[in-house]
């Protein structure tokens, strides 16, 4: 196999330039998707706000108008029921993911010492920086700021 062909990643060392341009932890495609979603969201909200309800009081009792309202109400109720079912399913999925994340991740972060793990706190209290509250000699060399306040 010719590992130096132009099709081979790393051929001629050109891939190193490309890899430097990429953000390793944030795939651009995901951010682009988010940007597009947020832009569309604002656009839909603006269009929704621009639509005012059509009504003329003196004509509201007309049967044709009543029928149009009733049809819209029925369609809205059907749509809401469908959307609520979909939202409920998606919400359950996200809730499950978050429950798993917070439970396992809190343990993992604690074990790896990245967070305020109990082991880390214990190490301070038992370690070389342990401070004896009865020792007033201040041999640690830490500046006593209690007098500064007074």
């Amino acid at each position: 196999m010719n590992t130096n062909s132009p099709e081979t990643p790393g051929a001629y060392g050109l891939d190193t330039v490309d890899s430097q341009d990429q953000t390793p932890d944030l795939p651009p495609s995901v951010e682009d998707q988010a940007d597009q979603l947020l832009a569309e969201r604002e656009s839909v909200a603006a269009e929704n706000a621009s639509i005012t309800d059509a009504s003329v009081d003196s004509l509201e009792t007309d049967q044709t108008v009543i029928d149009a309202d009733a049809e819209a109400l029925a369609a809205t109720e059907t749509l809401q029921a469908t959307q609520e079912a979909e939202a409920s399913e998606a919400a359950a999925e996200l809730t499950d993911f978050m429950e798993g994340l917070t439970t396992t991740q809190t343990t993992e972060i604690a074990d790896s010492g990245q967070g305020f793990a109990s082991a880390e706190v214990d190490e301070f209290s038992d370690g070389p920086f342990d401070i004896d509250p009865n020792d007033m000699s201040n041999e640690s060399g830490v500046e006593d700021t209690s007098q500064m306040a007074a």
Binding site: V44, N48, I51, S55, V65, L79, Q83, E86
Partner: peptide, 27 residues
């Protein structure tokens, strides 16, 4: 989640527009 919300908003907007058109015609 946001895609779902957006689709729902678009569906609701589409329904509102459709209703408004029918209502204007009825009026």
């Amino acid at each position: 989640e946001q895609s779902l919300h957006l689709r729902h908003q678009k569906e609701a907007l589409s329904l509102r527009k459709e209703h408004r058109t029918k209502k204007l015609k009825a009026l």
